[in-house]
Structures are given as structure tokens and as C-alpha cells.
Amino acid sequence: MMLELLLFPFFQRALITGLILGVLMAVLGVFVVLRRMSFFADAIGHSALTGIALGLLLKTDPFFAALVFALLVAAGIALLRHYSHLHLDTLLGVFFPAAVALGVIIVQLTPGFQTDLVSFLFGDILTVSNVDIVTSIIIAIVVGVILVTSGKRLLLITFNEALARSQGIAVPRYELLFLLMLAAVIAISIKLVGIILITAMIVIPAATAQNLTRSMSSMIGVSVAVSLIAVLVGMLSSALLSLPSGPTVVLVGATLFATSFLVARLRSA
């Protein structure tokens, strides 16, 4: 049954895209968790709803519209953060509901959108196309190059911003770069996991790794491993048991997190 499943082109597409995005979400998730930015990831995910709705209203590819909208929201938040004295969570507290409110109103104005709403909110592997695989690979290459060339600087900024600035690192530029990377990965992952659960797939692998590891490199490695297991087991289970893909992947991840939590407690006891 499982082998048969792997022969289906739709499942192959979803699995390939899921594994690529799983690695990206896991690595970026380490930065999100260490910088306590899960609220930002949530805001970007939810603002993508508005992008999807706008795309449908304007009769363009809704996921491309979501990608563009998520990038614009990320850039907007980064700029506001730079020029405002307000904290990031305060800015997100304004952006987040405003974007969702706009999305809901556009949903009401868009005929036929409501029928697809569940797949947008919770993910649907049937919607993953060859174009999504190519897009995921392109984003993976871009993010990979940025992380290889700037990863150490991003980690130093994560550790201590003042220390990073004093070493001549252009912190606002790297922050913008990070937020754009995160927004791109979130927008492209919505088809698989859905708007509601996207934050979980970014936070859970990194949080699980944080329970088990003591160095930065091992945290990244374990986060990637947890994400890949969650995607693989979750997607296979969802297809075999006819469950929605996003929630199943997230539940597998949450189970791994709970296990890591218990292991960490036992270790420290």
C-alpha cells in the first residue's frame, strides 16, 4: 500500500516539495525559536490568506499572490521596526489582525473562494504541482546560498545585536534578508501545511532540537532530522489514513516534541 502510494505522481510531488521545504523550515526555525519570533511567522502565515484572496479576486495564481504579499508584509514589518520605537510584537499585533481582517473581507467578496478555504487553511497535497517543486528548489538554492554566506552573521545577530553591530555588521539589512527568506518559505509551504499550521512546522522541529542539543550546529542538524521525519511519516500517514496532510504532519512533529521534552526532563533529573 505504502509502495503503491509512492508511485502516484501527486504524492511524489508532495513528498519532494515537503522534504525540501521541511529542511528550509527546520533551519529557519532555529533562528525563529532563538529569536522568539514565532509570532512573526504566524503573522506572515495568516497574511498569506489575504494574498491568496487577492490572487483569486484578481484572477492570478493565488499562491504566487500569497508569496508576493507575504514578502511585502515582511518588508513592511522590517521597515517599521527600523523606523519605529515600537517592539516587534506590538507591530505584529497591528499587522497581524489587519491582514487577517482584510483577507476575510476579500474572501467574502470572492465568489467560490469559501469552498477552497479548508485546503488553504490546513493544506492539501493534491494541489502541489511540478511548478511548486521547481519553485521550492529555487527558493531552497537562494536560501541555502544566503545561509552559507551569511549564516554566521545571522547567528551573531541572534545572539547579541549590539555585539554584531559593533563588528560592523549591517543588522537591519540582515534582518530584512532573514524576514524575506522566512516569508518566502512560509508562503510556498502553505499548500502543504496550510495557513493555520505553518508556524507549527517552523517552530516544532527547532523546539524539539533545543530540548535535545547543546550546540548551535547540533541544534540545526536535529531540527532538520525532526522536520524530515515529521514530513515523511506525516504525509505517508495522511495519505494512508485519508487524513488532511498539514494536521497529520504537525501531529507527528508534536509527538516528537513531547518525546524530546520527556527525554530532556529525564536527563536533567
Binding site: L34, K152, L155, L156, F159, N160, A162, L163, S166, Q167, Q210, T213, R214, S215, M216, S217, S218, M219
Partner: peptide, 23 residues
């Protein structure tokens, strides 16, 4: 520059060697 008393989060997985790696 060494800022005033850097507070390290108890869950931040950075070792002394890891800090030097960043430079």
C-alpha cells in the same frame, strides 16, 4: 566592544567555541 552584562538565555545553545566560530 563588549556591551554591558550580556544576558544569555538558558536555552541558547552556544558554547564558548561556538561564539569564537561566529567571528
Amino acid at each position: 566592544y563588549i556591551p554591558q552584562s550580556i544576558e544569555v538565555d538558558k536555552n541558547f545553545p552556544l558554547t564558548v567555541r561556538g561564539l569564537f566560530l561566529l567571528k
